[in-house]
């Protein structure tokens, strides 16, 4: 049986038709279930606990990245699978899991192909996709050694899944994340002298299992899955295959 958690924003009138179609598709696929509409009084943690008590195996987010992020944070390490029916904008999670539309999602959910994926732990929160910092005032401290970006560096990211990257993929099932340091744009002369065509060729990539990210001067903000920010210092750790996700054939990882 399935629990469906509707995010608050899909109460808007413009999503009314979409929701009706989704609900009909779920009935047709034989996977209709109990619907919970999020509001200030409805605690997600209570719903997750109720699902466990009711022996429910699937909790599905109906919404966008923010909805999925909130639900995934509660289900890490639990014997519950989660999935998403994307609605509205900002659906990197759905795309990463091979779900390109809400109608497609209903078919995928009914097939219930499950992958157990790694989860990133940052202090006491979790992330599925990435961490991002747009400042260089940051140090990756591994205990035995540390990595510091130079002035010519533009961004520092940690990837579990890279939803945007056609040129760089991270495998969320290997127990390892990748820290990627990307330099800023170089002059044509610098590119000519180095023999590198573009900045991608100058990236640094480090495998990561556990790292302390700290600042050198002022505390900096890291973006968690593009949803919320956290201030340094933070401890980041990979939890191997701690979340069950329902995926489609076109998922962006193997």
């Amino acid at each position: 049986m399935y629990y469906y958690i509707y995010d608050t924003f899909i109460n808007q009138k413009k999503y009314e038709n979409s929701l009706q179609k989704i609900e009909q598709s779920l009935v047709d696929a034989g996977i209709s279930g109990k619907i919970f509409r999020l509001n200030v009084l409805k605690n997600l943690e209570d719903i997750a606990n109720q699902a466990e008590n009711d022996n429910i195996k699937n909790i599905i987010a109906v919404g966008n990245d923010q909805t999925m992020s909130k639900i995934a944070n509660l289900l890490v390490g639990k014997n519950l699978a989660t999935g998403i029916i994307p609605i509205g904008e900002h659906n990197n999670f759905a795309r990463s899991f091979g779900i390109n539309s809400s109608q497609e999602a209903c078919n995928i959910l009914s097939k219930r192909k499950i992958e157990q994926i790694d989860v990133g732990k940052i202090n006491n929160q979790y992330f599925l996709l990435s961490l991002k910092s747009l400042t260089n005032d940051i140090i990756f401290d591994f205990g035995d050694y540390s990595i510091s970006p130079k002035k010519n560096n533009k961004s520092c990211d940690i990837y579990n899944i890279n939803p945007m990257g056609a040129d760089f993929k991270s495998n969320p099932k290997d127990g390892i994340m990748e820290a990627v340091f990307s330099p800023g744009q170089q002059s044509w002369l610098a590119r000519f002298l180095s023999g590198k065509k573009n900045e991608i060729d100058n990236r640094s990539i480090f495998p990561i299992k556990k790292v302390l990210i700290r600042h050198s001067k002022k505390s900096v903000l890291l973006s968690i899955d593009g949803q919320k920010n956290i201030k340094t210092p933070v401890e980041v750790e990979v939890l191997k295959r701690k979340l069950k996700i329902i995926v489609g054939k076109e998922k962006i990882f193997n």
Binding site: F142, D144, Y145, S146, I147, S148, P149, K150, N152, N153, K154, D167, F168, K169, S170, N171, D174, I176, E178, F181, S182, P183, S194, I200, N202, R203, S204, I205, F206, P207
Partner: peptide, 29 residues
Amino acid sequence: MFKEKKEETIEGVDTIIGPSVSVDGNFKG
């Protein structure tokens, strides 16, 4: 682990210390 682009140059590379970072300490790959 990452694959794709760098496989064009060297297969199975696990770490790239590029020109925009410096590493200090006892690095073990």
